[in-house]
Design a protein around this nucleic acid. Sequence first.
DNA 1: CACGCATATGCCTCTACATGTATATTAATC
DNA 2: GATTAATATACATGTAGAGGCATATGCGTG
Lengths: 103, 103
Amino acid sequence: MFSTLAALAEPNRFRIVELLRSGPRHVGEIEKRLKLRQTQVSKHLRVLREAGIVVSTVDAQRRLYELRPQPFRELDDWLEGYRSYWEARLDELETHLDNSRTE
Amino acid sequence: MFSTLAALAEPNRFRIVELLRSGPRHVGEIEKRLKLRQTQVSKHLRVLREAGIVVSTVDAQRRLYELRPQPFRELDDWLEGYRSYWEARLDELETHLDNSRTE
DNA sequence: CACGCATATGCCTCTACATGTATATTAATC
DNA sequence: GATTAATATACATGTAGAGGCATATGCGTG
């Protein structure tokens, strides 16, 4: 869970994930689309791979990267525990806090 | 969104959030329950506060910290965009990837 | 108003990580 | 088999962040 969150917390990795949502991509595609250096892309993909967020499949001399659903499911499962919490407060719109808020 | 993810990616902050899920707590309570130093707790709470994950209300010389629902809703909304993605693959169980997986 | 309790902040250190540059690896092509 | 394309890795550098320690701030109580 931590590795998932940490991986997604980095802006460029987040962009990569968002791009991969539209379908698998080669490293070179990611590089061009997001205007990143090749080494940056490879390194970020490594972090994403080690976090289980993507998998790569060999495609000739290139590699195709693709999202794995599992970490997203896990995140969703974790959030599930908070859903009751925030849904209970939907109507309040947090106005009861705005009065005495510190910041 | 990044500040939310970054805040949650830190293990001790994650524990604080998990603790607060059961209800608002004072700093001292968090300190004892999670066996952290007071300054650690205060600093982590600051990060969580700046990320909009918690709010503090003054309670005499103490401060009561409480979760805000909004960041969780935002995370959920973001995940929503991936739900169709992973639900489409629920049946496959990713077996089609295990064959050629690189790692 | 002096003291004590609860919490926040400043400073220091250490480690982790993001980037850049150079180079290694692997596969396709001639 | 030498060359080129696609990707990965090693090394160096800068910077942000987490923890520890000391101290400041704020509030209540005597």
